[in-house]
Simulated scan of single mutants.
Amino acid sequence: MIYLDNAATTPVRREALEAMWPFLAGSFGNPSSHHRVGEAAAAALLGARRSVAASLGCRPGDVVFTSGGTEADNLAVKGLALGARPENSTGGHIVTTALEHEAVLESCDYLRRRHGFEITVLPTDTEGRVSVASLDDAIRAETTLVSVHYANNEVGTVQPIALLAEVARAARVPFHTDAVQAGGWLPLEVNALGVDALSLSGHKLGAPPGVGALFVRGRLPLEPVLHGGGQERGRRSGTENVAGAVAFATALRLSTEDRAESARRTSELRDAFIATVLQQTPSARLTGHPTERLPGTASFVFPGTSGEAVLLELEQRGIVCSSGSACAAGSDEASHVLTGMGVSEEVARTAVRFTLAATTTAEDAAEAAASVRAAVAAVRGLGA
């Protein structure tokens, strides 16, 4: 098997497993408990928080551990939007894009339906990029939040986050970015990016599923999504996942240390893979920005085929990939990302996404490219 669905989830790093094991088997205490076992867990949690803060270039108190990227996005969008609104007031205004992950889009829709927020959805070009000018035009006096993803989970397009955040900062509007797909591939120093909140998910960068983090500047009022015992400085109640936090911090640290070389090597492999697919499979069309894209992401549409049928043919040949976001798996609807970029629904249903890892070899990529040609030909009924 050649696994090329790393945007959906990654293998857990051995170092992350080894780091978390003691807090599953031995130091299993509740970090809120005031005894020796609990204090050991609390110390480990603090160490993980400091490690994440070092990777992001922020204060430890600005790190909130969550159950993953979806919760981090929900807490950022709902928490910042509601936290910025004066008590007993209604309405508000959020600016986002049509290409966001469902966690952001559904949070915005909830705020529209239940709390009277207006939502401005920025257009993108055919390659999935947001223009700085369009954001500048969209912000108004009552805007309470801007949320734009760092890199798209389906086509891999990278947004000019620092420039977009600068526009929001000039208007004194908090800026959140969903950086779940950027972890391990792109710089995450929050001050250099200029963002006020940034979401990450552990299982995208070598930690186990079920843990993530939100960076949010402590000066910003944040309404909790989960209420209860007041853990995470009152911003996210619930007994902390100490083992998960330790694994997450370890995986983030390692991926940050490896990032530059991994990104360089994987980008070269990705470009070779894309070139081979486009050359050998004439019907293939690359989606997303040709250069401003995640190092490991190569996404295509194959007009005249079925994306699901191509996936089945590829899996029979030992190539594991996807048709887009794993969060929308099983849906008959065309990708909202592709249609938001102007791709027709019919063509969008032919999408296939390949996401490489730093461990993907040139031989793996070459075999996958050859399998794409055979799979598309088989689906077209031309024979493999």
Rank of each mutant, 00 (worst) to 15 (best):
S107P: 04
A309M: 03
G38T: 10
A366N: 12
A182S: 02
A329P: 02
H289Y: 11
G92Q: 02
G383P: 11
V52T: 08
V347A: 01
A298Q: 05
S255K: 10
E154C: 12
E39N: 11
R253W: 03
A245F: 08
F354D: 08
S335H: 09
T66R: 06
T10P: 06
S299N: 14
A247Q: 04
R169E: 15
L24C: 09
L111A: 10
T355D: 10
P295A: 11
L111N: 05
S267R: 14
S344R: 09
R59G: 03
S67I: 06
L214Y: 14
A326H: 12
G304W: 11
E367V: 02
R13T: 00
P208G: 07
G212N: 10
E102R: 13
R36K: 13
S107T: 05
R217M: 03
P209N: 07
S89P: 09
R49V: 09
N191S: 11
R236K: 15
P290C: 09
A207V: 04
E313I: 03
G202S: 12
V130H: 02
D364W: 02
A369Q: 05
L382M: 03
N152M: 08
S335V: 09
E102F: 14
V132I: 15
L356H: 06
V155W: 10
F273S: 05
H227G: 02
F354Q: 09
G383N: 10
V180I: 12
A182Q: 00
V216Y: 03
R236N: 15
L205A: 00
V347I: 10
G68D: 03
A98N: 09
T256C: 11
A141M: 08
G47K: 08
L105H: 00
G202M: 09
E333H: 06
L252S: 05
V347R: 03
A171D: 10
G57S: 01
R253P: 00
Q316T: 13
A377F: 01
A370R: 14
H115F: 13
T359R: 11
V64K: 06
S325W: 13
H203K: 05
A365F: 01
S27A: 15
A207L: 03
R293A: 15
T144E: 01
L80Q: 01
L163Y: 14
V320Q: 14
V37Y: 04
L220K: 01
F300P: 07
T9M: 08
R253C: 00
Q159G: 05
A326F: 14
S344D: 14
A44H: 08
A365R: 00
S147G: 01
V95Y: 05
A263C: 06
G184S: 01
E118N: 13
Y150W: 04
L122C: 01
V130F: 07
T256G: 09
R129E: 02
R59P: 03
F28V: 15
E345A: 15
T10R: 06
L200N: 04
A44E: 02
G318M: 07
L254V: 08
S255V: 07
T250D: 00
L278S: 05
G230T: 07
G128W: 13
R235F: 15
T144L: 14
D196A: 07
A243E: 03
P60H: 04
L193I: 10
S89L: 07
V379M: 01
S322V: 11
A43V: 14
R112V: 07
E118G: 15
R172T: 13
A329K: 07
L278H: 06
E118D: 14
D258R: 15
G244N: 07
L193F: 05
V320Y: 12
E292L: 12
V155R: 12
